[in-house]
Computed example of a mutant assay.
Amino acid sequence: MNISRSINFFCIVVGGLIAFYANAEQKQNTYLLIVGIVLLMLGVYRTSRNIPSKSEKPEEPFVKTEMKDEI
């Protein structure tokens, strides 16, 4: 596992734990919740940035139409 993927995973896990902890307290700490959500979203963004897009070639339709023979 390379260092970039490790950082992404770390951000997602730590951000989720911080957000969960900040939300679970009786008196919620808003700033801690914001920091957790920002870390979580940063990790998700960095991970999704590395996922390749679908192929660029045009897709064929799922249902193909049949050519009717003219008589």
Rank of each mutant, 00 (worst) to 15 (best):
M1F: 10
M1A: 13
I3R: 09
I3Q: 13
S4R: 11
S4E: 15
R5V: 03
R5Q: 12
R5L: 05
R5T: 11
I7C: 06
I7H: 02
N8K: 04
N8M: 05
F9T: 13
F9S: 14
F9L: 11
F9W: 01
F9G: 06
F9P: 00
F10T: 14
F10L: 15
C11M: 05
C11H: 05
I12V: 08
I12T: 01
I12H: 01
I12N: 00
V14G: 00
V14H: 02
G15D: 00
G15S: 04
L17C: 09
L17F: 13
I18W: 00
A19K: 01
A19V: 07
A19R: 02
A22M: 01
A22K: 03
A22S: 15
N23T: 15
N23C: 08
E25V: 10
E25N: 15
E25Q: 10
Q26D: 11
K27T: 10
K27Q: 10
K27V: 13
K27D: 11
Q28R: 14
Q28D: 04
T30K: 09
T30M: 07
Y31N: 15
Y31W: 13
L32R: 01
L32A: 10
L32Q: 09
L32C: 02
L32K: 07
L33N: 04
I34T: 09
I34M: 11
I34G: 04
I34E: 05
V35T: 12
V35C: 05
G36Y: 01
V38Q: 01
V38N: 02
V38T: 07
L40Y: 03
M41K: 04
M41S: 09
M41N: 07
V44Q: 02
Y45A: 15
Y45N: 12
Y45F: 14
Y45M: 06
R46P: 03
R46E: 08
R46N: 09
T47N: 02
T47C: 06
S48D: 02
S48M: 15
R49C: 10
R49L: 12
I51S: 01
P52E: 06
P52C: 05
S53N: 12
S53P: 08
S53Y: 12
S53Q: 09
S53T: 11
K54E: 09
S55Q: 08
S55V: 06
S55P: 08
K57S: 11
K57E: 10
K57W: 08
K57H: 05
E60D: 04
P61R: 10
P61S: 15
F62G: 05
V63H: 04
V63T: 10
V63Q: 08
K64W: 01
T65P: 03
T65L: 14
M67K: 14
M67Y: 14
D69E: 13
E70Q: 12
E70D: 13
I71G: 15
I71L: 12
